[in-house]
Structure formats: structure tokens, C-alpha cells
Amino acid sequence: MFTALGDWLVQTPLHTFFSDTTKMSTWLIVPMSQTIHILAVSVLMICAGLLNLRALRIAGTRETLGKVASNVMPWTWGALTVLLATGIVQTIAEPTRELGSTTFLTKMTLVLISVAIAAVVQNTTKGDENYWERTAQRQSTVSLLAVASLTLWFGIAVAGRLVAYAT
């Protein structure tokens, strides 16, 4: 399915435009898109770090988890929006390399799981800032989610860089 999508994208005018390296204006599209992508990853990783280290009670314990979530989640969603937009540009520019790569598809799967975890933490703390700290069981659960989330985001960043080397 993804290979077929890649084959279709190759034939689109947008792909021709994004991958045209004969003109400076179009040659700049992919590297600039990748630069913005990396800057958005910086924002995302710091937000993920702040939220998950607070969930693990390693840092930021002066504020409730709900308060930290309400501070960092708007930035997280903003960064994810930028990542999606620049990611789409890069996929259209190089559809075969991206969509035909197991590394890329693994990265996308991990992204979906990580976003789901972040959304769960955000939504559960919206009505009750101390939701995850009310019982020992909830504290254990959110600690597990935080470890999973940190591992996943780290894996996503590594996979993202390795897509460049995928054949």
C-alpha cells in the first residue's frame, strides 16, 4: 500500500517541484524543511523530557503533573504540527526513500503510540491536576507510561536520522 502511494507521489507535479535541484529556490526546499523539522524535534524532545521527568518525579516536582502537562502540551501539539507539515514535504520530495523504508514506517508507528500516551496524560489531568498521584497504582502506571514515552521518543529521533541511510 505504501509502495503504491510512493509510486503515485513520484508522478505528481508537487514531487517534481520539491525535488527539482536545478534551481536554488527549489533546491532549498528539502534542506530547509529538514532544518525546521530538527528545530521542531528540539521543542518536542524538551517538552517530552519535562513532562515525563515530572511524571517520574525526577524533575519539576514543585508543580503538579497536570500543571506541567497544561504548560508543555500546547508546545508539543505545535511542534507535532510543524513536524507533520515538514515531514509531508520531505515525503513528497523523496516518496520512495520514505515510504519504501521499514525504518520510516517503524518511526511513524512509534509516533502514533507516543502521541496517544501524551494525549492520555493530557486529557486525564485536564479535570484533575493530581489524577495520576491520587493512588500508588496510578503513580506506577504513569511512571511506566513516562518510561515508555521517553524510550519511544528517543527511538523515534534515532529512526528519523537513520531514514537518511535506509536503502
Partner: peptide, 12 residues
């Protein structure tokens, strides 16, 4: 690259 991401994110 990952280290740079953390440098830039934290300093920003």
C-alpha cells in the same frame, strides 16, 4: 544530532 537537539531545545 540528538545531542544538538537537546542543546538547542534546552537553551531555547
Amino acid at each position: 544530532v540528538l545531542s544538538i537537539v537537546f542543546v538547542v531545545g534546552s537553551i531555547t
